[in-house]
Design a protein around this nucleic acid. Structure first.
Length: 325
DNA sequence: ATGGTTTTTACTGCGTC
DNA sequence: GACGCGGTAAAAACCAT
């Protein structure tokens, strides 16, 4: 996927390739010659029928390879179980032995059976967390979960954080770094990726790790894993501030509007997105007569009043330059 | 390390309730 | 006189080089 070299089938083999050709349902055309594309499910590629350019490689056919004509048959043919989740250190795939001494029908077990089950439980637990990586993961994911709930981050963010952590582990980024540090960094990155950013300070509050270390680890992880994280969009902070200050929808709408045409005029470059968002909320509260004080906003946004003042002047100036208002 | 930029801190003056 | 707000200067933090 990361390999950007374009592969191309030799023209001579064009006929052969065309024989394999499936009915392509793609509307798209070849970026090079404009010819039509055909998806070759056998090779997992999308190929141009004109020039043979391989447009997509390593595709996965997500569908079942069997057909079922009714529910019963589907039951019989389907070989998959519960979805896996990255939030559990073993992706939820390992065996679990119930703690109740009951058999599958709910009947109590004989004492002999009970002993046996106890032994099995012991060993199963040992296997489940066998090597250091597994144990490492288990702990890290626990941390991520704890911090995420403390910050009120939704499940998909935790999932993303788990994936990032898992990758970091696989790439051997851990040695020399604390588990908590990397876990926090992963969560920070995930929150930003999901458009529900939390500030470094907020992370620091719930993490056992110093701010500096989080920042350092975060930069490291982002670089090593080539995570692409755009600078935070000021708008993504607005809803949180608005609700923390118990302001109306109208304020939120107006604040977004302010930010948007500020964006169009390129007012914000290098300025902290949080400051911009805070200023927008403040300005908006004035415009809609739902006054909050600067210090209140600065409180929930963790930004100084001075910054709010500076930004909100800029925002209002930008507003005046808009012809359509 | 360094220099440029942004944010924070601290302080002051003004108007209002 | 306390409070909200605006402005300023200097210090601190941040970032790329």
């Amino acid at each position: 996927m990361t390999d950007t070299t374009t592969r191309r089938y030799a023209r001579e083999s064009e006929h052969e390739e065309n024989e394999h050709e499936r009915e392509g349902d793609e509307e798209v055309v070849c970026p090079e010659c404009g010819g039509s594309l055909a998806s070759d499910t056998e090779h997992g590629e999308t190929v141009c029928t004109e020039c043979g350019l391989v447009v997509e490689e390593d595709e996965i056919d997500p569908g079942p390879e069997w057909r079922a004509f009714d529910a019963k048959e589907k039951d019989e043919k389907s070989r998959v179980g519960a979805p896996t989740t990255n939030m559990m250190h073993d992706k939820g795939l390992s065996t679990n032995i119930g703690w109740q001494d009951k058999d599958a029908y709910g009947n109590a077990l004989s004492s002999r059976q009970r002993e046996k089950m106890q032994r099995l439980r012991t060993w199963n637990e040992r296997f489940r967390t066998r090597d250091s990586k597994e144990r490492n993961l288990k702990q890290a994911l626990g941390e991520i979960d704890r911090m995420a709930s403390a910050l009120g981050l939704p499940e998909n963010v935790r999932e993303t954080a788990s994936v990032i952590y898992r990758r970091a582990l696989e790439e051997n980024l851990l040695p020399g770094r604390s588990i908590e540090g990397v876990a926090t960094a992963a969560l920070y990155a995930a929150a930003r990726k999901a458009g529900t950013p939390r500030s470094l300070d907020e992370l620091t509050k719930v993490s056992r790790v110093e701010k500096d270390e989080i920042a350092r680890t975060y930069r490291y992880v982002v670089r090593e894993l080539n995570l692409e994280i755009k600078p935070a969009d000021p708008e993504s902070y607005v809803p949180r501030f608005v609700s923390d200050l118990e302001l109306s929808e109208e304020v939120e709408r107006r604040a977004r509007q302010l930010l948007q045409n500020a964006k169009e005029q390129g007012v914000h470059s290098g300025k902290s997105p949080v400051g911009l968002a805070a200023a927008a909320v403040y300005a908006s509260s004035l415009l809609t007569n739902e006054k909050v004080t600067q210090s209140q906003v600065s409180e929930v946004a963790n930004i100084s009043e001075v910054t709010i003042r500076n930004r909100y002047h800029e925002l209002l100036e930008a507003e005046e330059n808009v012809p359509g208002l």
